[in-house]
Simulated assay, not measured.
Amino acid sequence: MTTNRYSSVYRPDLFSGQVAIVTGGGSGIGRCIAHELSSLGATVVLWGRGREALEQTVSEIAEDGGTATFVTGDIRDESAVEVAVDSVMERHGRIDALVNNAGGQFSALAADISANGFDAVVRNNLLGGFLVARSCYRASMRTQGGAIVNITADHSRGIPLMSHSSASRAGMANLTRTLAVEWASSGVRVNAVAPGFVASSGYDTYEGEPFADRLAMLPSLTLAQRHGTEAEVSAAVAFLLSEAASYITGQELLVGGGCDLMNGLLDIELHDKLPAFDGFHRSRRPDALDDVSPL
């Protein structure tokens, strides 16, 4: 049993009494978010397709003194989503927060992506997020209010080698704005967080050329000159879910170390003056970075 706790920058009771769903909460950024929300008092419901990773994360949270449960179901399946949300409502009676984190993609040139491959990523990253948000709104948030944070990506300049993900993430960003308008009168805020180059287990899902050889040079594409941490993304999510962000809705926050400002007009010298924040005591460095310098 670990004796450490998540070192959040927020007060420990920030989400006390609230129920928060985190899709894709068994690994990577979602796992980190689940741990932080739990450390801040929330009852966290992890959502995924496989039980093993969810059970492990629930066990970790329990060891740390938090409260978590999980539901399983394919977020791309409308009926499965309804069943999962109904089970959350039966057990907890309310849904105060939703983090639409589940998603995925593979690395390939657009010319080499099949129609089925493109559709699978869009259904996972966009349709699934919509179905979960809609179900949570209908079941609870329409009458009780709430906050939603959709996890997107740095898609503003396109995402070469991941055209399917770029399209779906941009769609989710626009959906975020639309839902913020439609659900405002129900007391629901909807925002998005766009991670940049974040060192999470997601790195380990990409194999071979051309992605693997690019990991080492990604920090040079940021003002911070480093990879981001899962905890830095989680901190942004926690802020947008909190009452401190009560006047913020329909926005997308880039957590990317200034990657959007790298335009080649000025060379950024290698530096370590923007050190990483990593409050996640159970963080795991991706295997893909084993041969890559931390800076």
Rank of each mutant, 00 (worst) to 15 (best):
E209Y: 14
F239L: 12
S201Q: 14
L126Y: 09
A173K: 07
S185G: 00
V122T: 10
A192I: 13
A173T: 15
G208I: 04
G187Q: 04
Q225K: 14
D204Y: 08
M141C: 05
S166K: 04
F211K: 05
P160C: 06
I148V: 15
N174Q: 14
F197S: 05
E182W: 06
M172N: 00
T152L: 04
Q225C: 05
G129K: 05
T176E: 08
D154W: 00
T178P: 04
S234T: 12
D213L: 10
L240A: 03
M172L: 15
P160M: 13
R134P: 05
Y247A: 12
V255Y: 05
G171W: 05
Y203S: 02
N125S: 14
R189N: 05
G196L: 10
Y203W: 09
T143F: 08
Y206P: 00
N174I: 01
A199H: 07
S200F: 09
T205M: 02
S166V: 02
L221N: 01
R189V: 01
D154I: 10
T222Q: 05
S201E: 14
L241P: 06
M162S: 10
P210L: 04
F130V: 15
A216I: 09
G146P: 06
V255W: 04
R177T: 12
Q251L: 02
N150R: 13
G187V: 11
Y137H: 09
D204H: 06
V188S: 03
H164D: 10
L223A: 11
A235V: 10
E252S: 09
T229G: 04
N174G: 10
R169H: 13
N191S: 13
S200N: 06
M172I: 15
E182N: 01
V193G: 13
R142G: 00
A147D: 08
Q251R: 12
N124P: 00
I159N: 06
F211M: 13
I248D: 08
L241K: 01
E252H: 01
P219W: 01
G171R: 02
F197R: 03
A216R: 12
V181K: 14
S186Y: 08
A184Y: 07
A139P: 02
F130D: 01
A236M: 08
Q251W: 03
T143Y: 10
V122L: 07
P195H: 11
G171S: 08
Y206C: 04
R134Q: 13
P160L: 09
L223G: 00
A245K: 06
C136L: 08
R134M: 02
T229W: 13
Q144L: 13
A147W: 09
A224G: 01
L223W: 12
S185K: 07
L223V: 15
L240R: 00
Q225R: 14
T178Q: 14
G146M: 08
L175P: 02
A139F: 01
S163L: 07
Y203E: 06
P210K: 09
H155F: 10
S200E: 06
G129V: 15
R123G: 09
R226H: 12
R169E: 10
L215A: 11
A236W: 00
G158T: 12
Q225N: 04
S242N: 08
H227G: 02
S165D: 07
G187W: 10
H164M: 11
M217S: 15
A224K: 12
S165Y: 07
A133V: 02
V233I: 15
L131M: 07
A212W: 01
L218Y: 11
